[in-house]
Design a protein around this nucleic acid. Sequence first.
DNA 1: GTCTATACCCCGATAGAC
DNA 2: GTCTATCGGGGTATAGAC
Lengths: 183, 183
Amino acid sequence: MREAALSLFSRHGYAAVSMRQIAKEVGVQAGALYNYTPDKQTLLFELMRSHMDDLLSARAATGDSGQDAMARLEAFTRFHIHFHSQRPDEVFIAYMELRNLTPENFEVIEGLRRQYENGLEDILSAGQSDGVFAVSDTKIAAMAVIAMLTGVNTWFQEGGRLSLEEVEQIYWDMVRKSVAANP
Amino acid sequence: MREAALSLFSRHGYAAVSMRQIAKEVGVQAGALYNYTPDKQTLLFELMRSHMDDLLSARAATGDSGQDAMARLEAFTRFHIHFHSQRPDEVFIAYMELRNLTPENFEVIEGLRRQYENGLEDILSAGQSDGVFAVSDTKIAAMAVIAMLTGVNTWFQEGGRLSLEEVEQIYWDMVRKSVAANP
DNA sequence: GTCTATACCCCGATAGAC
DNA sequence: GTCTATCGGGGTATAGAC
């Protein structure tokens, strides 16, 4: 059911997808879905929370905290592009369906998103202190970098002009230069 | 009607907003709306097309073509942030509701969007030829810059920690460094 | 745990009076 | 040009049989 909902929500949007459509994709009747979710809202919320949990766990598992700021930023950049490229549906939903969450659910997802942003900001702050980065505002620089990297998902296609490796390298060049003290 | 639809679509999403809701906001009954639009789809399309037309017209009106590439890139950066900051609802809809356009309408909007992207790519190519920019791929650099700049709209609030002027300066610093040959 | 059936409500769009 | 009324359909969620 979660797989079906993920695919349908990302293609048509939460509001445009009915429980009947999800049930049809799963191969059951609509009523049967309510054995697995209390309602449609909770289904959306759990999809988004799982995605954010996976993101934070995978990021934590890279364990780059012993390195210098430049290496940590490169690891973050490549991790972000790689992770997001493997989960286009989840990423799309996580950004597009925020407004369809109840206020309480929205707060939870926002908190997880802020945790992720703060991880990048920590790297930028550390590099700023070390003198390897020079940005006027670490918070804004973090948002700018994340927006730039997440943008890859709007156009990247496996098998296109460039491989994901090449894309990673191009973006890392730009990210590095954009924040470096001596690019 | 267009104002009401704009506000409601951006807050709740095209699919989640009914013609009856729009009519209520306008202060008429639902049937009356059909004197102004043939259907809901056309209403969405016209909102998006107007927005893209305004964007391209305003961009053309800046008339920076006589300047060097660095000055043109700065003009583009500041124009993009300024223009988009004045129209949060339109920008949100233009990015979020693409999938709710019919295929024919989608092609029209995509064409306009590509025109805008190509405008930036032209600047980057010119600077690359002049040796003032150094990017591995002008197409991707253009997408990366636009994604970064458009991201401002997800967090910027008038009256917040930073003025729009300050935000423009911070982003211009990052954009300049990210593509410059000698930042 | 899945089914059928249904309660209750809203949808886009149109018809025809005024 | 706006209204009321309505067509035909689909929405979420639940009840109760199996």
